[in-house]
Computed example of a mutant assay.
Amino acid sequence: MTTAPEPGSSSGDTEPFEPHYEPPDWYRNPVEPAASVVGHSMGFASVTYERPGCSVCGAQQVAAVSVKRHVGMVFWWRTRTADGPFCRPCGITLVREMTTRSLWQGWWGLFSLLINLLILAENLDAYRQLVRLPPSRPAVGKSALRPGKPVLRRPLAYVALIPAVWAVVLITNIALHS
């Protein structure tokens, strides 16, 4: 192999300079990982990842649930969903908050009565999954959400009685006048 000529020097050597590069051993012969790691192109070493924790606080004891909130408007509606693995306190907090908002805002549309009932049933199922989880600690540097008051101890949950009373009055009037 020839060496590179010094800049500004003129040598009588007519052989052209060709740089030579040999990649290191770890590049030519990568170590096979014990299990394939998604997104890891070279496989330098066996990398083990912990399973995903709570999407809020990083705790490891989690349940994969969807918590929904429904807002009924006269001619349309809006539904919001919080998907993810949640630990017990974070998941219960979300269920309580979103269920209370659904009880308060979910009845005020043409089809919202049925949609809201389905969403409340789904939230009840998510709640049952979350209360079965053992207590867990949040990841270092993070804190879990505080569940706060249960749904039936929140005043906004009782706004749901307004459409229920309205439905009873409507059905009673229809039954009496027919």
Rank of each mutant, 00 (worst) to 15 (best):
residue 136 S to P: 05
residue 139 A to I: 01
residue 141 G to S: 04
residue 144 A to P: 09
residue 124 L to N: 08
residue 153 R to Y: 11
residue 126 A to L: 03
residue 123 N to Q: 06
residue 163 P to N: 08
residue 150 P to G: 01
residue 145 L to P: 00
residue 130 L to F: 08
residue 128 R to F: 05
residue 167 A to Q: 11
residue 124 L to D: 11
residue 131 V to A: 02
residue 137 R to F: 02
residue 121 A to F: 08
residue 140 V to Q: 14
residue 148 G to F: 07
residue 164 A to L: 15
residue 123 N to R: 03
residue 159 V to E: 02
residue 155 P to E: 01
residue 159 V to P: 00
residue 121 A to Q: 07
residue 145 L to W: 07
residue 141 G to R: 06
residue 167 A to E: 04
residue 123 N to V: 04
residue 147 P to R: 12
residue 134 P to M: 00
residue 148 G to W: 09
residue 156 L to M: 14
residue 131 V to T: 13
residue 147 P to N: 03
residue 130 L to S: 01
residue 145 L to R: 14
residue 137 R to M: 10
residue 158 Y to F: 15
residue 144 A to D: 02
residue 127 Y to N: 06
residue 161 L to W: 13
residue 134 P to D: 13
residue 170 L to A: 14
residue 121 A to C: 00
residue 174 I to N: 06
residue 143 S to E: 09
residue 176 L to Y: 07
residue 175 A to E: 02
residue 122 E to W: 10
residue 119 I to A: 01
residue 132 R to Y: 02
residue 138 P to I: 00
residue 158 Y to M: 01
residue 129 Q to M: 06
residue 139 A to D: 02
residue 171 I to C: 12
residue 168 V to G: 10
residue 141 G to Y: 02
residue 130 L to M: 07
residue 155 P to G: 06
residue 124 L to V: 09
residue 148 G to S: 05
residue 145 L to C: 01
residue 154 R to G: 02
residue 150 P to C: 05
residue 170 L to T: 11
residue 125 D to L: 11
residue 156 L to W: 13
residue 151 V to L: 04
residue 166 W to M: 14
residue 128 R to Y: 02
residue 143 S to I: 10
residue 149 K to S: 14
residue 137 R to C: 03
residue 140 V to L: 11
residue 153 R to F: 15
residue 127 Y to L: 07
residue 128 R to Q: 12
residue 135 P to S: 08
residue 144 A to Q: 12
residue 150 P to A: 05
residue 157 A to F: 08
residue 156 L to S: 10
residue 172 T to M: 08
residue 150 P to R: 05
residue 172 T to A: 15
residue 172 T to N: 05
residue 139 A to N: 00
residue 132 R to K: 15
residue 167 A to T: 13
residue 167 A to D: 00
residue 131 V to E: 11
residue 123 N to T: 05
residue 130 L to T: 06
residue 123 N to K: 04
residue 152 L to P: 01
residue 146 R to Y: 07
residue 162 I to F: 15
residue 162 I to D: 07
residue 126 A to H: 01
residue 151 V to F: 01
residue 129 Q to R: 15
residue 141 G to A: 04
residue 126 A to K: 03
residue 171 I to S: 12
residue 143 S to D: 04
residue 165 V to M: 12
residue 122 E to I: 03
residue 176 L to I: 08
